[in-house]
């Protein structure tokens, strides 16, 4: 197992030349590899995906869900007709008891003529009828308001329902604007895809190239030793550059070729990408996505509006009911008084 300790010992000049040669080599390798890396960065295209839910829509969806979603306004809308009907019935009943009493009064006046000398019910009830008329107008207006709310709800209920879905369902329900997906099969996309595949190949070539460049090894020692023996001096630069040329010449050409073909492909990608972007603008799929997003946004706004309309409407009907109940009491009170008076008058007439 003899190991010659002095095997690696060389003359100082040779050692210095070796050092310089290795730094030259490192320079060459770094330059080549650097340009390869740079080219790869250049070729990275932006991610073209376009199918996540925009943040603003997500916020609107949470807001709608927080306020009770579709169910809460659906229930209120269902209640409106009943509230309207209840108010109508109270008003109709009030006016009916006025009418009945007035009819009776008119009949008795017709029967007893001037002996039926009390104030006609018609005159007495005039202010009440006017008030009743006002109530009728107000109710008619409320019916129109109900209609508006209902229409507004019908227009947006589908989109509001969508807003109430969990995020993943919402995302899948929104048409994707992912160009690669939506423009599947279109000429431009195929060309673009082919170019990107080609670009990938060039990238892969570069990786292989880089590996090969790094793996090049050669030994200058023997050359330097022979030069030193023959001439007594070492022309390191000439020897190193000559050796580097022979070793890396082909690689340099291949790197140049790789960079050149990448430039060409990138230029092509640029143009087809512009075509693609223009196509995307005109593409109804993408527009369709915009449509849906716009509708979702306006559905949120209408939801807020419908909620406040319904709150207002419900309050209106409940307040009106209280007023109508008071009105009904007034009517029944006066009619009761009139009836009592009528009976007394009848009694007197009979006695006379």
């Amino acid at each position: 197992k003899f190991a010659d300790l002095f095997e690696k010992m060389v003359p100082m000049l040779v050692q210095q030349s070796l050092n310089i040669a290795s730094s030259r080599k490192a320079d060459v390798v770094n330059r080549l590899v650097g340009s390869l890396r740079e080219a790869t960065n250049l070729s990275a295209l932006e991610d073209l995906s376009g199918d996540s839910v925009p943040q603003s829509i997500l916020e609107k969806s949470h807001a709608v869900i927080q306020q009770g979603g579709l169910n809460s306004i659906e229930q209120l809308i269902k209640d409106l007709p009943e509230l309207l009907q209840r108010n109508r019935e109270i008003l109709d009943e009030s006016l009916k008891i006025l009418n009945d009493e007035e009819t009776t009064d008119n009949e008795l006046r017709a029967k007893f003529n001037q002996r039926w000398n009390r104030t006609p019910s018609g005159d007495l009830y005039k202010p009440l009828r006017a008030e009743g008329g006002n109530f009728r107008n107000v109710l008619d207006k409320a019916v129109q308001a109900d209609q508006v709310v209902k229409e507004r709800f019908n227009t947006h209920c589908e989109m509001i329902a969508l807003l109430c879905k969990p995020e993943n369902e919402l995302c899948s329900a929104i048409p994707s604007a992912n160009p690669a997906k939506t423009l599947q099969g279109s000429e431009v996309v195929n060309v673009l895809k082919a170019q990107l595949v080609h670009l990938d190949e060039i990238k892969r070539d570069r990786e292989v190239l880089e590996g090969e460049i790094k793996s090049v090894t050669f030994d200058m020692m023997s050359k330097f030793l022979t030069a030193l023996a023959q001439d007594g001096a070492i022309n390191e630069e000439a020897l190193s550059t000559a050796e580097l040329d022979t070793r890396y010449g082909t690689y340099t050409q291949r790197v140049q070729q790789n960079l050149r073909s990448q430039e060409e492909i990138l230029a092509q990608v640029q143009t087809s990408h512009q075509e693609f972007a223009a196509l995307k603008q005109s593409n109804n799929e993408a527009n369709h996505r915009d449509d849906v997003l716009k509708k979702l946004a306006s559905a949120h706004d209408s939801y807020i509006e419908i909620s406040s309309n319904l709150k207002e409407g419900t309050k209106f009907y409940n307040d009106l009911t209280e007023i109508l109940l008071k009105f009904q009491n007034k009517c029944s009170d006066i009619v009761f008084a009139r009836k009592t008076e009528r009976e007394e008058l009848l009694k007197e007439l009979q006695q006379s």
Binding site: V138, K141, A142, A145, N309, E312, G313, F316, D319
Partner: peptide
């Protein structure tokens, strides 16, 4: 607001 206001009803009654 969408629904008629009940205030004018009350005012109307007070005036009468």
């Amino acid at each position: 607001s969408l629904y008629p206001s009940l205030e004018d009803l009350k005012v109307d009654k007070v005036m009468r």
